[in-house]
Write a protein that binds this DNA or RNA. Structure first.
Lengths: 366, 366
DNA sequence: CTGTTAGCGCATTCAT
DNA sequence: ATGAATGCGCTAACAG
């Protein structure tokens, strides 16, 4: 149980001024190496931990990072957060979590963003799947506040830092795979169209159809909600149509919705993949363990999280030093600013398992 | 884009002192109602948001709540966090997230806890499944720092506030159900034994066996890791045994492990539930959509999260006012302190689906 | 290279 | 019931 130590205590022990201690702690260059070493040793020995609060007050911005996530129940959010958390915990920053799971997404989100700004609590913002509220984030970015989006940027004009997956390419690959398997009537269950990723995945689906010269049948497209129940509802809608109008394959915009399709298929006594081929999107951990194992498009979540948080950390450091540089007008900053690659699109990959019918199924009754 | 407003600005606009504004903002009783109303109006109009940072510095403790979670990839964590986040967002508190997913659980955890204390950043701590590190938390609690555990308290001597589920009862119900279905050789895949819940669930399993006069077979008990791959590995171990020694039913300590059992069953051409009955624990959202749908023990996660965070908030407020009361020695605190119910055990419920064989399965081939 | 000092924005205490 | 004044712990500017 470490007792409360202030920077003054350390200064006293090291027989230097608080200014020097502060300089050491913040890695300022102009400190005598010996003094620095001595101070660091004392800091270590005493187990001194600086007060983020006080530091924040002094600088006007804290060593905290806001993470804005949509529904916390999406498996992808966990996966993303995992790598984000791992990296942040190596730094002196902490994660402040905001979720905008509530119904009034739009309003709620801008309120949260205002709050983040006004309280000046956090140094930067990582927004996962911002959806429509991305435009609020644009404002932030334009005002010089470090922001990084994970997927789902929604305007072409965005020059906002962004890390995402190749949703369109993934959907294209998935759909093409179904086509190559001989399917002609391929249904698409979209995600909620308020998300850019849903549009992208739909486009990829259309791309593949068009490439194969297949006509797009509007009755084979439904908008889901990314959740199992939504997928189930959409699938029921397909299965209740007259036989010739039914799809022989379904491309679901998320694994969760694919699970719903499986449930619906069972209700209708449809075998997967014999009677219906199915492909999902995300590659949730559970998907490999479904019966049949779900063919899906893998998103590189760990990578996305890592890249995004590293980018954000970089932007934050940059904006800090930017303020410092005002006072060192003589020199140009050595470090090249990251104006070049603020956007990163990571590839997705098709993971072929049983539900699409490409593999021989380990039938339960073989 | 709200501009930075200080309490001083508000004071100037309202033509009062900062002291008064501060009193209003903190709901101190001794303020003229009219003045209060006027100030509140101005605060509203100007969109003033107090700086958590500065407030924290002044008081020595922030309006932040640390949440300590184990592996972020466990679905239950998402579900728990969901209700926690919802409630916290209604308050003036924010959530700071710490995960201890890394391998060196033990060391890492105490480091995180020290950090939480030393930085004095947060006002309270909510620890989800603390496992072995619960004893560090005990220290915190004994030093008067508000702490609430969600499940997995590990010592009987804990007088630490705690909210949990009836793991033992749930496991008992699940196992008894299998017994009533006629199974005699029921395997148990435990969670990692560093978690108290794993022990509890195992005890419930034993309870049911004993009640039925069934002998406990050590070869039918394996320790998993809560993850699908662990469950799969354990199940394989069962299935490779000579036929008479194999289980006819499996009780898995988590749904995720049950998924692994399903995969293993498929490898061995075992039908569920015909050749093997299966029950899980947790009721993850996906579980209803497995094929066959998983019979499992539902944990009341939303409730648990809600109760826990409310309790913590309560404790925090209490410790705040405790400090104030030192100066009002004349009066006894009106509010009864929550010494009575710091521990809450919520019931679990058995959700019967297909994998246990109790329901008629919608067979794929009927 | 280093010591000194003035706030950062707020809660709180002491006067009134 | 309220105004004025103090300090929380730290950083950054200034002066050596």
């Amino acid at each position: 149980m470490t007792k409360k130590l202030t920077i003054q205590d350390i200064a006293r022990l090291a027989e230097v001024s608080t200014g020097t201690v502060s300089r050491v702690l913040n890695n300022k260059p102009d400190v005598d190496p010996l003094t620095r070493k001595r101070i660091l040793r004392i800091v270590e020995e005493q187990g001194y931990v600086p007060s983020i609060t006080a530091a924040g007050l002094a600088v006007g911005r804290n060593r905290l990072i806001s993470v804005l996530v949509p529904a916390l129940t999406w498996p992808l959010v966990s996966e993303l957060m995992l790598s984000v958390a791992e990296i942040v915990e190596e730094t002196s920053y902490e994660i402040v979590l905001y979720s905008i799971s509530t119904s009034n997404h739009e309003h709620d989100c801008s309120r949260v963003i205002d709050r983040i700004l006004a309280t000046k609590l956090t140094a930067g913002l990582l927004a996962v799947f911002p959806g429509q509220s991305a435009r609020h984030l644009m404002e932030l970015h334009q005002h010089g506040f470090p922001v990084v989006l994970i997927d789902d940027q929604n305007a072409p004009l965005d020059d906002i830092p962004w890390v995402g997956a190749d949703n369109r390419g993934g959907a294209y690959a998935a759909t093409r795979h179904l086509i190559q398997l001989g399917h002609q009537r391929i249904a698409c269950i979209q995600g909620p169209m308020k998300y850019k990723v849903s549009h992208d995945r739909y486009k990829g689906y259309c791309d593949a159809l068009q490439e194969a010269g297949l006509e797009r049948d509007p009755t084979l497209v439904q908008e889901g909600d990314f959740m199992p129940s939504g997928g189930q509802a959409c699938a029921r809608a397909f299965f209740t149509r007259p036989l010739p109008e039914r799809p022989t394959a379904v491309f679901a915009g998320s694994d969760l919705m694919a699970y719903g399709v499986m449930s619906a298929a069972q209700e209708f006594r449809l075998r997967i993949p014999e009677d219906l081929a199915l492909v999902g999107f995300d590659d949730n951990p559970s998907s490999a363990h479904m019966q049949p194992a779900l063919t899906t498009v893998r998103q590189p979540f760990p990578d996305m999280g890592q890249r995004a948080i590293e980018l954000l950390l970089h932007l934050i450091e940059q904006s800090r030093s930017a303020r410092q540089l005002r006072y060192e007008n003589g020199r140009q900053p050595q470090k090249v600013l990251v104006e070049e690659v603020p956007r990163l699109q990571l590839p997705t990959s098709l993971v072929i398992r049983e539900s699409c019918g490409a593999l021989q199924k380990h039938s339960l009754f073989s």
